[in-house]
Structures are given as structure tokens and as C-alpha cells.
Design a protein around this nucleic acid. Structure first.
Lengths: 196, 196
DNA sequence: GAAATTATATAAATCGCACTACAGAAAAGG
DNA sequence: CCTTTTCTGTAGTGCGATTTATATAATTTC
């Protein structure tokens, strides 16, 4: 019952990678089916047979992004010896990701759906929940830093997690506006002042 | 030769204000003509007779925004006694504006056109040039602060102007995600750490 | 008052875009 | 081989959104 019927003539995984790149550089609504099918090298019927709909394809692309590019910043968070080092590494990773975008820079999870039509609102909420989760991870790392003595007990970890979340959003916006690596890296030092 | 023909049955200035609010809360592409004509209380032909096209209406709405809501942050920049006070006032004003958005929060100049179709790219560039100008104003204020002894000569005003620009973009993104006034105001203190 | 000019309303044209019949092709199962 | 199943390519369909004919109404100018 497994391999019945005509086999698919393209590599679905590679096609999904290409879809992810298009969504990443243009956002959900900015990516039109022409762009998607052209990037994947397939025709519309093949697209729909393989991915169901534009929205379903976007969700899959987001999952893939979270598992690849998106994981860098979170991994960096866990690796630093101190909370400060972890946050710094997270920002560095975030900059790498933002500059690694195919054409226009920035993070798919931040820029993928911002000013969308009402019918796209569920996708926006989905991305928002992922961002909220990231913020919780930052908060947890800061709390650990307090527990381990890296940071004073007087700080408000919630606020600072929110702050670094905002900084990463700012980084994405600037990357989308064409900022260079030097431009973005220069933002790290002033951002870290909040933890000193 | 002035007032020939049937007079307009609505107040163009007030209609433009309403258009501005729709563009502000939904962005250029998120705002559809239905929303615009409904908000202005006019029919499509009247809209086109008065404003020319959706794009032209957006540009006028942006001009109006720059002259009203958008001017607050820049005015605040000039009023502080020290550079630090000016930046703090700018952020406070920016938060006020972001929360003053009709429905979903944030700044029209930051959120109005981000992930747009290629045909909307000129509008995105237009907003970007306004943002660049804001950044120059911030830089000028910081340079003045250095000249007046508020800030040490060792700082890089360009980088810090870029940083506060990114912070304001982050504030807009968080406002769009539903942040409260307390949430946004809490971001000011960590942001100001870069100038201490 | 008649002519010229400009706005309004209804209604539709135009057009881009997500999505899909339909017929043909390539495999597995019998 | 014949049937069944699933994919592919061409060529559209349908829908929504921006934009415009066309006729009519309200003013100014002569």
C-alpha cells in the first residue's frame, strides 16, 4: 500500500526548503504562488498535491525554519557560561540568521506576518506564540543567571527578556532595511549595557 | 475659476484623517479600499476624484502623520536639557504614539510597509527614507550632547542613533503584538543604560 | 435661464491571484 | 495486459480588490 501510483518527480524536502526561502524573504502575503512554484520548480497542481494550500505550506516552512535557522539563537542561550555571555551569543546568532536570509534580511518569525489581512490573522498569532515562547526561554536563562549569581537579584528578568526580544525585533527590521553585518553587530554593545 | 462645478459633499481633510487611521492600523496593503471608503464615508468614485489612487492617498496620509503624530518624537528630542533627557522623552513620546494607534498599535512609518509586494516597494522606500531622517536627527542630538558635555567623547553617536532607532522599531513591534503601556514603558530603563 | 463644470451614485469592467478540472503519464497490483 | 492509483501539465475558474463608464445632480459663469 506504500508506493502506489506515479511517483513524485521532485524532492519534497528540497522543495520545502525553497518555499521557506521565499516566505522568509517576502513574508506570507508578499510571497505569491508564482514565486513559490517557480522557486520549487513545480506547477500549481503539484504544489497543492504536495502541500495542500499556501497556508499549510507556510506552516510547514515555519516548522522547518524553527528546526534550522530559528534554533540557533535558542541554542546559544543555553551555551554561555554566564547569563551575559548567553544573551550576547543569542544576539550574535540572531544577527547571523538575519543576514543569512535569502534576499532581504531579517527573521521569518518576526517579519513573516505583521500587517496582514484579517484572514491571515491566525498565521500571525502562530508566529506570535513562537516569539512569546522565545521570550520565555530568555526569561528562564536570566532567572538562572540570577540564581547562579551572574546577575543581581534586583533586576526584573521579565522586563529584560522583553527588552531583548524587542532588540531582536529591531535587528530584524534593520536587516530588512539593508543594514550590514557591522551595523548590526554594533548594536550588541549598547544592548548589553542593560545587564552591566 | 476657483469654485466651479458641483461642490464636494464631504470634508476632504477629515476624510484624509480617517484614511490615515485605517492605513495606520492596517498598513498599506492590509488596508483595502472597502475599509478606506467606509472610514471616509464616501464612495469609490469620490475617493478617486479626491485622492487619485490608493498609493497617492497613502502618501498624503503619511505626510499628515509626519506633521502630527510623527512629529512628537522629534520635538521631544529638541526639548530635553541633556541628551539623556531628550532620548528618554523621545522614547516616551514614541510609546504614546504607538499606543495612540486606532486599533492595533505601533508607528505608521515603521509598520506601514514591511513585507510588501514588489509593486509596493516605492512606498516602502519612502517610509525608509523618513526613518533614516529620524535617525539623523537622533544622531545630531547625541552629537550636541557630546559637545555640551552630557556624553563622553568616546561614544559613537552613529551607533547609538542606530540603536535607539532599533529600540523604537522594537517598541512598535511589541505594541502591534498587544503590549500594554506598562510593558512598553518598562523598556525605557534598559534602553537608557546605553547612555550611562 | 442656459451652458459649462465638477461631484455623486450605481454598477460594472478589469485584473491579479489562489486554486482546480481535465486529460494524459508513470508507476504498482492482479 | 488490464485495472487502479497517484502525479504532471495545460489551461482555465472563481473570487476579491482596485479602478472606471455612464447617467444624474449641484453649483458657477455668462
Amino acid at each position: 500500500m506504500a508506493n502506489r501510483g506515479r511517483p513524485r518527480s521532485f524532492d519534497r524536502d528540497r522543495a520545502l526548503q525553497n518555499l521557506k526561502e521565499v516566505f522568509w524573504s517576502k513574508g506570507y502575503e508578499g510571497a505569491q504562488l508564482n514565486d513559490l512554484t517557480a522557486a520549487a520548480g513545480i506547477t500549481p497542481p503539484s504544489f497543492y498535491a504536495a502541500f495542500g494550500s499556501k497556508e499549510a505550506a507556510f506552516r510547514e516552512a515555519v516548522d522547518l525554519y524553527v528546526a534550522t535557522e530559528g534554533s540557533g539563537a535558542l541554542l546559544a542561550l543555553e551555551e554561555g557560561a554566564t547569563a551575559q555571555a548567553s544573551i550576547r551569543a543569542m544576539l550574535a546568532s540572531s544577527i547571523d540568521t538575519a543576514l543569512g536570509a535569502p534576499q532581504s534580511g531579517g527573521c521569518l518569525l518576526i517579519l513573516g506576518a505583521i500587517n496582514c489581512r484579517s484572514e491571515t490573522e491566525p498565521l500571525r498569532q502562530h508566529l506570535k506564540s513562537i516569539r512569546t515562547n522565545t521570550e520565555k526561554r530568555i526569561n528562564a536563562r536570566l532567572e538562572r543567571g540570577v540564581a547562579e549569581g551572574d546577575l543581581p537579584r534586583t533586576i526584573d528578568t521579565r522586563v529584560l527578556a522583553n527588552f531583548y526580544s524587542a532588540v531582536m525585533q529591531g535587528i530584524s527590521m534593520q536587516a530588512r532595511d539593508g543594514a550590514t553585518r557591522e551595523d548590526l553587530q554594533a548594536l550588541v554593545t549598547p544592548s548589553m549595557a542593560a545587564l552591566s
